[in-house]
Amino acid sequence: MTTDEIPAIVERHLDDQGGLISILEEVQAKFGYLPADALTIVAETTKRPLVDIYGVATFYRAFSLTPRGEHLVSVCVGTACHVRGAPRVAAEFERQLDVKPGETTPDRKFTLETVNCLGACALGPVVVVDGHYFSHVNASKVREIIEKTREGLDKIEIKTDRRIFPVEVSCSRCNHSLMDPEHPIDGFPSVKITQSFGQQHGWLRLSSLYGSYNIEEEYKTPYDTVLHLFCPHCHTELIGGSDCPECGAQMVPLILRGGGTVQICPRRGCKGHILDVG
């Protein structure tokens, strides 16, 4: 990402009343923060004085003028959390990450901030890391939270989450099983199908856990492309499902062992799916 893209971002928001906040939000999403150069360019392209842009950028807590870390740790120190010991939690985060609130660790992994209320007072003290809420936090849980964050919070806890279960699927045309026990994902046999995008054909392995979106692929396909998926056995294209409830692409139907079908969205990155158990 370079600052060259900023005029395009500004262009997109010109109609909605100037849309300065939307512009800054988008710039921040690209860079992770608002660099000084970017603000100057926003000022030039919107033809607004830099003081106004700077004023808005410094007014809202959501904007940051200093680089933020990969993970954002927000410790609630609102009244309800405060009386339940949030200051001790905040102090423990400060000690373990060795930064003050508002600062980022030198390795750019963590940014620590305190917030005044997250509206989840009954769960207090509350800590939010990258959108994941941790409730009833005390100082002894801080290490666990940091460790979990380092491992990746999006990783699903298969053993503890009962909404997640393995499925076995087969081709909707030849009824050949698509399961590949040789190559497990999430500890279960993966679902192997052939994907095609442009000139490239290669295997795609999906996690067979319902609720997990982990995949592996032979060729990296760009985010947001709609893939063509084929059965590796009869080589027919897996097609003919209903429209994806999330993005509208035509879904790929697969037969569930034990009856019923599951339809998955072929759009890379889309989590749309329909489970229909007989």
């Binding site: 830099l50 003081v51 842009i53 700077y54 004023g55 410094t58 007014f59």
Partner: peptide, 19 residues
Amino acid sequence: AKAIGFRNRGQNRSIGTPF
């Protein structure tokens, strides 16, 4: 000119030039 303006908010509000 619009060289100076308000920055930050609440307790930290101040007047000055950007940066």
